[in-house]
Each structure stands twice: as C-alpha cells, then as structure tokens.
Amino acid sequence: MAHRLILFGFLLCTRGTLSMKTLNHVTVRTGGNVTIPCLYDDQYKLNQKYWCEGHLWTLCQIKAHTNKTAKWQVTDYPAKNIFTVQLNNLSASDSGYHWCAVEIGTHANPDDKESLYLTVKTDPDVSVVSSSVTGLEGGNISVQCFYSFGYKTAHKRWCRFKDKICYKEGRTNTSQNSSVQISDDGRESFTVLMTGLTESDSGWYWCSVGDLEVPVQLFVQWDTEKYRTSDNAGSAFPTCENDQTARHDTEDRNGILLLLWIAGPLLLLLMVVLLTWRIKRKHNGALVTQAPDATSMTEGPLCYDTVVFKKGKDHDQDQISTRRPADQDYEVIYSAVKLH
C-alpha cells in the first residue's frame, strides 16, 4: 500500500513534464549571463509562465514571472510556443536545479514543468564565444564551442532545440539544402559550420559535450544586397529603396486627394457666385434698356422724323414748306424726335 502511495505521489508531481521541454545541464561562467529557452504545448499560449528554483518541485521557490520585473526576466513568445529566462550576473550559489513552468493550478491538472541543472563556476567545462549569432539567408555561420581537457574524448554535438535533432562530428546534409559540419581541432574546442542557411534555420541550438550544454540563438536574416541585385534583374523580390519609393508615391497621391477634397467645394461655390452675379447683371441691363431715363435720351445723336419751316410775321401770307429757302428767316417746328 505504501509503495502505491509513493508511486501515485511521484506521478502527481511529474505529470505534465512531457509537454514542457528545455535543456538538461547548462554550464555558465561566474558573473556571466545565460538565456534558457523553454518550449511549451500550444494549449498553454495564454497561461502564466514562471521560473522556479529548487531540488524538488514541491519545495521550489518562484524566482520570476512573465512580464514582471525581477532579478531574472521571463519573456513569452506565444507565436512560437516558447518563453525564455534571462539569468544575469550568476554566482556559484545559483548552481542547482531550476524549473521551466506553466501555471495551470488545479489538483487534477497541476502546473506543467520541466527541470534542468545549472552549474556556475569560474572555469566552466563547456562554453561558447557568443550565445547569439546572426547569418544571411543562403550564407554561412560558424560557432566555436570550448571544452575542458577532461572532456577531450567526449562526444561533441550540435543540437536544434525545437525538435531536439543533434548533429555529430563530420558533415550532415539537411532537408533544407543546408548542411552542418562539426570539426574538432583536438585543442579543447570544436567548430560548427552551417552553410546554405534558410529562414527556417532560425531558432535555438546548443553545443553539447558529453552531458553538458550551452544554448546558442541563431538569427537568419534576408540578404538585402542579394535581393536588390535580383530586383534590378527583374526579380519579384522588392528592395528597401523600392518600398520607400512606393510609400512616398502613396503619400503624394493621398496629399493630392486631400487637396482636391478641400478645394473642390470651394471651386464649386465660386462658380455658383460668378454665375449668379452674371445673371443678375444681365437682368439689370435689360431693365435699363426697357426704361431709359431722360438723361440717357439726350446722349447720342438725334434724328428728326419731320421738320416744318414756318415763315415769320413780316410776310403777308403764312406758308408751310418742307424745304428751307436760303435767303429767308424761318421759325422751325419739330414734329417728332427719334433716338437711335
């Protein structure tokens, strides 16, 4: 009966560890820094992640939570189902068991977790020149891993974290047309050469010597110079300059549309005012033509319709004529006046 209780307790404490993945035994130099990757199941994207320290899970102490400021920093990347723990300024007292964990918090389904052992010492048995390397797509990267004399005959490997595929010494071709070559110089270091890099090669790896590991993060970036050359030759890949030109063209086009949107109503209003003014002016001119005043009638040449000449009192007989004699003084009577 006691054996059954012990087995039940063990299963209860270890339930969920198959989901979480991390490294096994990491070595770090005293006063140094290291970033630990922790891979979790897709169903835990929204759960709280944390870092716990202690030999036993039931007695471990939480040292950092996701997005909470503390001595160590936990950062979650839900799109990749991974969170990282940044450990800074490590000391020998930090050596021991640590846990990557996802908060679930029910008796039937306890928190998902996975442990690793951290060794902090002045002269670590395994180390790397840089824990972060960057390469160009289609290019190569080189990582140098160091080991102590006691691990000279141990197996050297380069492992990928997301699927835990490990490459041994020698040359290995991958399915992405890239290759991994591991060469041991026999002088306490070995070199990992990755050629023909692709974007899918980005991620976490580790140098492994025996049972010791050191994590390394690889970033694969686009070769912008290569795509610029290809674009000039008619390739479909755009360059940064073309992107900027297209963006500027779009901004100019938007500016013109905005100007038209503002100026359009103003131009329409101006046209209506001008049209109204012209109609009103034409109407006033018609009124003046139909009813001229006395002043306007006196302007311009006068034409007489009928002119009658009448003799003066000194003559014996009154005589009316439409012609004017040259030698006599006549009084002029106007019959009608027409204005042209």
Rank of each mutant, 00 (worst) to 15 (best):
G54F: 12
Y205N: 14
S335G: 14
S131I: 03
G139Q: 06
S130H: 00
R253E: 15
S127T: 05
L287C: 01
V273S: 10
H98E: 13
T322I: 13
V209H: 07
F10H: 09
E169G: 12
C145N: 11
N254Y: 00
S130Q: 10
V143S: 08
G9A: 06
P238S: 12
G234L: 05
T239W: 00
E114G: 01
T289S: 07
K71T: 00
L118W: 08
E137Q: 06
L7I: 05
E251S: 02
V26Y: 12
P301Y: 00
Y50M: 02
T224D: 10
T198Y: 05
F161P: 00
I182Y: 12
D201N: 09
A291V: 14
L260E: 09
S132K: 09
T239A: 08
P265G: 07
L257A: 13
D223E: 07
T122D: 15
S178Y: 07
A101R: 14
Q221F: 07
A70D: 04
K80A: 00
G186V: 03
Q244C: 11
Q319E: 15
T191I: 10
V102H: 06
D201P: 07
S127L: 05
E199T: 08
D94P: 04
Q290S: 05
G54S: 00
L136Y: 04
P265D: 07
T295V: 10
Y304L: 02
A286N: 06
C207R: 05
H248V: 03
G203D: 03
T195A: 09
S189I: 04
H107N: 07
H340E: 03
V180R: 15
G105Y: 01
